[in-house]
């Protein structure tokens, strides 16, 4: 039970996939331009993580070692394609604004990393829990980034004007360069607060 709590804490805070493990940066930078996109992407990745982790954990004793990566990718691709079709059918607006980044979850290294590093070595319950916490950690990071970028870059939140019109938009924050800068500053702050010393390269 204690281990279960640690798994949850790891995924969301101490080993946050974005801020600490630095996994899956491409969708993080591309999708964090607006809060709505961030929440849509976060929810989809969380669902895929929970499902793929549980199934890979179930199959971990059946899958021969030599073909485990292929098998993981097939399982993950299956769930991602299902998620893509469901999003297109039920939430066409979100699906359109996320575009290519939903199918690209197949190659998102968070999902494969958790399959290989956790689900292939733990039971179903813990693996599902790990998927949930890693997914929440990913969503949390995306939310923080996108709130900063949407608020300061466009003066809006969820597409609604929040800041007074006189407040100047920092347009660059909405562009890819702004994504890199925001992420870099946030990671530096988090490392500082958590008292970690940077490793020498």
């Amino acid at each position: 039970m204690k281990y279960a709590f640690r798994v949850v804490g790891d995924g969301i805070f101490t080993r946050n996939p974005v801020f600490v493990m630095l996994l899956g940066m491409c969708p993080v930078l591309a999708v964090s331009t607006s809060l709505l996109n961030a929440l849509g992407m976060g929810a989809t990745v969380t669902a895929v993580l929970i499902l793929s982790n549980s199934f890979i954990s179930l199959l971990r004793k059946v899958i021969p070692d030599k073909i485990r990566i292929v098998s993981y990718v097939i399982v993950i691709a299956g769930f991602v394609t299902v998620a893509d079709m469901l999003l297109k059918a039920l939430f066409p607006a979100i699906s359109r604004s996320l575009g290519m980044f939903i199918p690209l979850i197949v190659v998102n290294c968070i999902v494969l990393a958790r399959a290989e590093a956790f689900a292939s070595k733990h039971g179903v319950f813990l693996s599902a829990l790990d998927g949930l916490s890693m997914g929440l950690g990913f969503t949390l990071a995306l939310t923080i980034l996108s709130v900063i970028r949407e608020l300061l870059g466009h003066g809006e939140l969820m597409g609604v004007r929040v800041l007074p019109d006189a407040f100047p938009d920092i347009v660059m924050l909405g562009l890819p360069a702004g994504g890199f800068l925001t992420l870099g500053v946030l990671i530096a702050l988090i490392q500082r607060v958590s008292g970690r010393k940077g490793e020498r390269p």
């Binding site: 199959l59 059946v62 899958i63 021969p64 073909i67 292929v70 098998s71 097939i74 399982v75 691709a77 299956g78 394609t81 299902v82 079709m85 469901l86």
Partner: peptide, 17 residues
């Protein structure tokens, strides 16, 4: 194993599609 995994995945995709 590979055959089973791909078949089950394909079946699932077919149903959802």
């Amino acid at each position: 194993t590979l055959f089973l995994i791909t078949s089950v995945t394909a079946l699932l995709l077919g149903i959802v599609n």
